Computed example of a mutant assay.
Amino acid sequence: MNDTTPVARAAIVYESMFGSTRRVAEAIADGLRPFVSVTVMKVKDAPEAFPDIDLLLIGAPTHVHSLSRPSTRVEAAKWGDDPERRLTLEPDAEGIGVREWLETCGGTPARFAAFDTRADMTEIFSGSAAAAIDKRLRRLGSHRLLAKHSFLVDKDSVLVAGQLDDAREWGRTIGETLRTTVAV
């Protein structure tokens, strides 16, 4: 086996309303791929358990200081219907969210990392979906590989410049960290 063959396995599960969280998940996967075999999936497609992976990454948009709820996803759909906002709702955005999915999870992998998209302001004012994900996964017995990470959006729910580069770099950091913690 050569040094460029990924040996660890990761899954990225994400929820996205207008595409920003999806794009971040894809960029994280790009950064991870040199180190890890990675699968990216919408939360609606995620299984209840991941018995064959070394790391689970979960990301979601921050709604009302935490994870989305059915009511906040309905509100997001209204934003998508407003032509002045110029937002396109992601397919299945109004379906199951990370909050509900985490309530149905069976066994979780030994390691996880959480990320979110949130408004470009101090976290004390915006809140963090990643903080809620982190808390729930630790309660389920999983261990945090790296501290949660937030990727910022502007008032129009568009990623702030440089956030996708930051996501790729975070993916590389995760890959390097995972490589040193997973026995080869």
Rank of each mutant, 00 (worst) to 15 (best):
39 T>N: 10
33 R>S: 06
81 D>K: 14
78 K>L: 14
119 A>Q: 13
108 T>L: 13
182 V>H: 01
172 R>W: 01
82 D>Q: 02
165 D>W: 04
10 A>H: 01
39 T>C: 08
145 L>K: 02
95 G>L: 12
173 T>Y: 08
77 A>M: 12
22 R>W: 14
4 T>A: 12
50 F>H: 07
93 A>G: 13
73 R>N: 05
162 G>D: 00
116 D>Q: 05
13 V>N: 02
151 F>V: 04
54 D>I: 14
128 S>I: 05
178 L>V: 08
40 V>F: 01
5 T>R: 12
81 D>M: 15
155 K>M: 11
17 M>S: 11
59 G>A: 12
18 F>I: 08
182 V>N: 02
19 G>W: 10
29 A>L: 01
56 L>T: 07
45 D>M: 08
71 S>K: 13
113 A>G: 06
74 V>L: 15
109 P>E: 08
36 V>R: 00
109 P>I: 10
169 E>Q: 13
54 D>C: 09
39 T>K: 12
160 V>W: 01
30 D>T: 09
47 P>Y: 09
134 D>L: 02
17 M>L: 15
160 V>D: 00
147 A>V: 10
18 F>H: 05
114 A>L: 06
55 L>H: 00
13 V>I: 10
115 F>L: 11
84 E>M: 11
54 D>T: 09
8 A>D: 03
111 R>S: 09
128 S>Q: 06
155 K>G: 11
110 A>I: 11
25 A>D: 09
157 S>N: 14
133 I>E: 04
16 S>K: 08
43 V>I: 14
176 E>M: 15
131 A>C: 02
103 E>Y: 07
174 I>S: 03
147 A>Y: 04
61 P>G: 13
127 G>V: 06
184 V>Y: 14
137 L>G: 04
28 I>C: 05
100 E>L: 10
56 L>M: 09
101 W>G: 08
181 T>C: 13
134 D>T: 14
27 A>K: 00
94 E>D: 05
20 S>Q: 12
81 D>F: 09
153 V>Y: 06
61 P>V: 11
108 T>V: 15
6 P>L: 05
2 N>E: 10
176 E>N: 12
148 K>G: 03
138 R>Y: 00
121 M>W: 07
145 L>P: 04
169 E>K: 12
53 I>K: 02
164 L>C: 12
171 G>P: 04
66 S>Q: 12
136 R>F: 01
164 L>S: 10
58 I>D: 06
122 T>Q: 14
93 A>Y: 11
5 T>W: 08
15 E>H: 01
104 T>S: 12
59 G>S: 09
169 E>D: 13
175 G>L: 02
72 T>M: 09
66 S>F: 08
87 L>T: 07
14 Y>F: 15
112 F>K: 04
86 R>T: 08
137 L>H: 04
171 G>Y: 00
30 D>M: 00
109 P>R: 03
154 D>N: 15
181 T>S: 15
135 K>D: 08
116 D>M: 07
163 Q>N: 03
76 A>W: 09
112 F>Q: 06
25 A>H: 03
44 K>D: 15
161 A>G: 11
30 D>A: 09
163 Q>G: 03
101 W>M: 08
4 T>M: 12
107 G>E: 14
62 T>W: 06
146 L>K: 10
83 P>N: 03
11 A>K: 11
174 I>R: 00
45 D>T: 07
